[in-house]
Every structure is written in structure tokens, then in C-alpha cells.
Design a protein around this nucleic acid. Sequence first.
DNA 1: TCAGACCCTCACAG
DNA 2: ACTGTGAGGGTCT
Length: 301
Amino acid sequence: MRTSEREVVFRVCDYDLAATLTSGQAFRWYQHGDTWEGVIGSHWVRLRSSQDSIIAETARPVTNWEWLTHYFQIHLGLGDVLASFPQDESMNSAVMACHGLRLLQQDPWECLASFILSSTKQIVQIRQIVSLLCKGYGEPVAVPPGHPPAFAFPSPARLAETTEAELRDCKMGFRAPYLLKTARIIATGQLDLDGLRQMSVERARAELLQLPGVGRKIADCVLLFAYGFQSAFPVDVWIMKALRELYFPRRRLSNLRLQRFTETYFGPNAGYAQQYLFHYMRTQRPLMLSKPKAGRSHSAA
DNA sequence: TCAGACCCTCACAG
DNA sequence: ACTGTGAGGGTCT
């Protein structure tokens, strides 16, 4: 076995860490200069990436890095995934524009709770809410000397014993009762999140849909971002916009018809295809379609 | 299938 | 600067 180290280097190919961490699948990564800091489970991590490697640093020595390689899907080759995409102009443009974009494999509870908090919120606001939630109710994790404190994502049990008012103080608004009720369902074992791993994607989705605040979109986010069901295809306003503009510019299809289209057209790795279209729409397309923003005021200095 | 409600925050006009 | 307005990774009724 490997000796215990605070730092490890992973050789990677086609891995755009920045794009991956800002593509709206995880909400707890922060950029500091050329590094990214975040918490995975109970580990504080600092990451640095170069062309062909990712360097991870922790606060305490680590012997088994499986939690990290799993989260980042380090050993997944992107070639087979990209090859399974439909070969159309839009898909090719998205793949070119988002070269190295990856899907993470997150903790189911953190993913579920985060996406319950995501409805009709901008990503910056989701990040703020999740941050407040972790500061308020998450366990502190080890950080380097002198570093500001960092927190794990609060457990279902911990959140189950909060009140709606306390959760609303984290600025989550009407989502508070949803999160509270779902936390109680998970904490009492009424639904076993680990058990979903062995189920078919349809069965797992049906289980998630029973939770308050969880509809089709959020269920599919959890199926894809936490469990790795590659066929899950979350359809949100951005994907809807992408489908209408890129694939059906002159037809008026119902949301249901568009959903049906995604279930067959994008193939076995539809979830990955979705992530490329989503990031493409959010980053590249707006720059081309909308007018440049008016000059910003200089708030500093 | 179809609105409307739901909390709250930020960007953007005026 | 200050206030008004609209919309933001949806879900529920």
C-alpha cells in the first residue's frame, strides 16, 4: 500500500477542473488564485490542476484516496462517453466548447439537499444558501493551520432536529419545509438513500419523487450527479432553451414531447450530453446571442 | 394540462 | 445613491 501523505498527484487526460467545478453540479467549491478549495465528506481539499494532472492537498495525511478518485471519477476515460453522443452540429459545438468537462459523483444526501434548495434560484444564491447551512449545522473539518474553518455538509439527522425558522434564516425561503421534511424522512430511515444504488433508474427515481420538494428535474439531478445513472437527463429551463433553439427552432413542442425526445436521442450517456449542452448554453451561447453588458461600475478602489 | 403561489436576493432601470 | 421591477437549475395544489 501507499504511505500516508498530505498531497497526491493524479495523471489525467481531458479533465477541465474549472469547468467541472463551475458547471452547476456542485455548489461548495471556491477558487483561490489558481487553486480550488472545497470539502468532500469530512475531508477539506485544495486542488491544483495542470494540463495532464490534478494535485490534491488535504489537511491531514491520507492513506486511501478512494473518496477523492471516486468523487472526481479520475479513472473514467472520456473518449467512449463522447463517442456515444449523437453526431449533430449542436452537440459537436458543445463538446468543442466545453472540452474536458466532467461529471462528478457526489454524496447522495448532500446532492439531494442541495438541489432541493436550487429551485428557482441562481447558482450564486444556491452557493450562498448551502454555505450558510454548512456553517450553521455542519461538523467542522480539519483545515491547515491558520486557515479559516471549513464544515462538512450537515447530516440528515442534524437537519431533522432544526426548525423551519432556523432553516429560513439560511435564506432558503419556501424551500425550508421541503428540506426539513425530507431530512426527517431520511433520518428516520423511512427512505434509505444507499439502497437506491442497487435499483433500476426508474425505481430509484420513483423513490426520490416521493420526497417533498423533489420533482422530476431534481430527482434526475440526484440520479445523475450522485448515483451515476448515466441515462438520467435533468430538464431545466436552460436545457429546454437549448432543445428549442438548437434542435427545434421552428416547431412548438410541449415540454413533455421535448422530455420524450431526450430519453432516446442522446443515447446511453444522455446525462453527460446534458451537462455539455447546459454548460455550453450558460457560457458560450449567451455571449454570442445577447448584447454585451453595459460598462460596470468600479466598486473597489 | 395550466396557472398561481411560494421566499428571497440580486441585477438592472429609472 | 435610492427605489421599483423582474426573474432566477422548480414543485405543489
